[in-house]
Design a protein around this nucleic acid. Structure first.
Lengths: 105, 105
DNA sequence: ATCGTTCATCGTAAATATACGATAGATTTA
DNA sequence: TAAATCTATCGTATATTTACGATGAACGAT
């Protein structure tokens, strides 16, 4: 990439792009859906439902966690992941705002 | 990436991820905003408003065009880009659906 | 026909992302 | 304590993305 020019854009545009990046892989879309469909949210259960290795799923979870769309709570030897509704709502609001702004030609 | 596993996911999840990918760079968010703020939508005008080289902007426009979020109409030697409202609405609907689905924990 | 303008594409370099096996750390269970 | 389980991280390979200069193709104007 030579030298990432991201600091040349506004914080808002960068944040929106970051949220979009977190959603830019089908595995991560799937994970978000799984987390709400299932009662349990252990990593193992998620891995079972995806065509990916455990290490790879862990990386995707890390990416979703990085932007705050999910939380991971330690429960004994396991980790219970769940969506972060507050940040999810924040993301939805920001995307709505973008779409309503760019909705003309 | 070894061997992209994207074909192992549903078409819907892949499409949503693809739209999100198109939005996953601040320059492309900015471009969408510029296209609605400006009367003119020549590439040159967009380049002037971004801290990027013309070739780079052209690549970003190509990515937005790939997923159908913008159209490019040839006008003489220039090309007039504008947002594609139909596909924009489709993307918004799909994202809304996703967010409403995953909105619980 | 030639020139200048406009934009896409090519070639290339560096950064990131994706994927996996192997391993390490933490914790429960035996 | 030892063994088993669960998950993050490391190391690594490959693919993709981002960025730019240079070039080429298309068009209007001279």
């Amino acid at each position: 990439m030579a030298s990432s020019k991201k600091e040349e854009f506004t914080q808002e545009d960068n944040w929106l792009a970051d949220v979009a990046k977190a959603l830019s892989h089908p595995a991560r879309i799937r994970i978000l859906k799984i987390l709400t469909e299932m009662d349990s949210c252990m990593v193992g259960s998620i891995v079972d439902k995806l065509p990916l290795a455990q290490a790879t799923v862990s990386q995707h979870l890390k990416e979703l966690k990085r932007v705050g769309l999910i939380d991971g709570d330690i429960v004994g030897p396991k980790i219970c992941y769940c969506v972060n509704n507050k940040n999810l709502a924040k993301a939805k609001t920001a995307l709505d705002k973008l779409f309503s702004k760019i909705g003309c030609c």
